[in-house]
Nucleic acid binder design. Structure first.
Lengths: 216, 216
DNA sequence: TCCTGATGTGACCGGGTGGTCATATTAGGA
DNA sequence: TCCTAATATGACCACCCGGTCACATCAGGA
């Protein structure tokens, strides 16, 4: 259910306005509660027009999520380009910083991602999550295999377990950073840049100690 | 907004039936989308009756969540009783097992908790989460302070950071266990009891290596 | 038995939703 | 300039929601 030709033919500026309004509405309310009436009122266009651009609410949402995956793909690509052979732990530290930058630059897109992650009534939820997970499994899974081969991390842990542990901590950190509601005690939102950097370093350090090969 | 006297006067069996139906409806649909119409149809009572028992939808929901916190309190109490002075890492391992048992015995209550955690339109969300967080901060925070004093874990990490790391991993594990949608690769739902135990042990082991004092 | 207060009932209300469609407006080639 | 096809419009529809309330039913003391 891609956007209709009518939407594609729109001037880029108007496309962007519509996308932005949709992203905000979905970010603030989730899929179900997001209101097309509110969106068109805010945009100053008729509801019928929206249906000239997209087949229905679901089509609009899928378009929005597609733009999100595009952004993630971009981010990962530049990530891979920057440090393909760096140490495992500096790589995941960089991934964490990349996540922070993403949230800073696209907070509403990140909120939509969280909505999809935790609301069950999102259309095609499984497929959407699958797409994103594929990125992250490929990325972290690849790093893990490489690091185990190089003796950087313990070899007695299956890669899915390593990925699980790394993702747990990184995701949770980003969730706390993005929304204070999920911050259970770090107070990330009000931390100074220096203290935030310290927190990042500490987290990576603990993962390093935890995942490095056991000393004899 | 506690239940009205009318509800309290109901035979215990009928109270239980209503509670169970409400828990299921909220677990399956979250607060907003949960339908009182569906509930009363399933219960075979009139909608007006529901409003004799509870002031409104919010009152019913708060009652349900209160029962959840009761269950959690119970669980924590028996946890503290069983092993007050055991090693930090065996304590958090036990906490993880307790979480697994809770999900096994009360899956719908756990789903409601996740809903509250990740849906923003839940009434009094902050207060509800605060209650639960208090339990966990007190429990894990206390364990951390004790463990740092005893030299069991690194003393250069602030306790909130330790709690954050432990909770990240434990919570994520339980989420994956409770709903395969959140399982990114461990396949917890289909693991044999033995493999699941192995996973638990590995996770605690990594946390142990990560949080133990650094060797000189 | 009858009366009264508590409890049970479901038709109904206002409001919001996603989606439709007959009609008005516009753009641009003939 | 005029005609036509593409686009814009918003009143309208059916549906579902939480919540209300006038009324039916019931329980049990007088």
């Amino acid at each position: 259910m891609p956007p209709k030709g009518t939407y594609i033919n729109l001037p880029a500026a108007k496309q962007a306005r519509i996308l932005t309004a949709a992203v905000r509405e979905f970010a603030e309310n989730g899929y179900r509660r997001a209101s097309l009436n509110t969106m068109v009122k805010e945009l100053g266009i008729a509801k019928g027009s929206l249906y000239q651009y997209f087949v229905n609410k679901e089509g609009l949402f899928l378009y929005v999520f597609d733009r999100f995956t595009d952004l993630v793909k971009e981010m990962l690509a530049s990530q891979v380009k920057n440090g393909p052979s760096a140490n495992f732990f500096t790589q995941i530290q960089e991934a964490l910083w990349a996540g922070i930058r993403f949230i800073d630059s696209q907070p509403d897109f990140y909120r939509i991602y969280l909505r999809v992650l935790f609301e069950e009534e999102v259309p095609q939820r499984r497929a959407l999550l699958g797409k994103v997970r594929l990125f992250s499994m490929e990325y972290f899974g690849g790093l893990c295999a490489q690091a185990q081969a190089g003796g950087i991390i313990r070899q007695d842990l299956p890669c899915p377990m390593v990925v699980f542990l790394v993702e747990s901590v990184l995701d949770r950190f980003l969730q706390a950073y993005a929304s204070p509601d999920h911050d259970t005690g770090l107070g990330l939102a009000t931390l100074s840049a220096g203290d935030r950097e310290l927190a990042v370093v500490q987290i990576i350090d603990v993962l390093k100690s935890g995942l490095s090969p056991l000393r004899a």
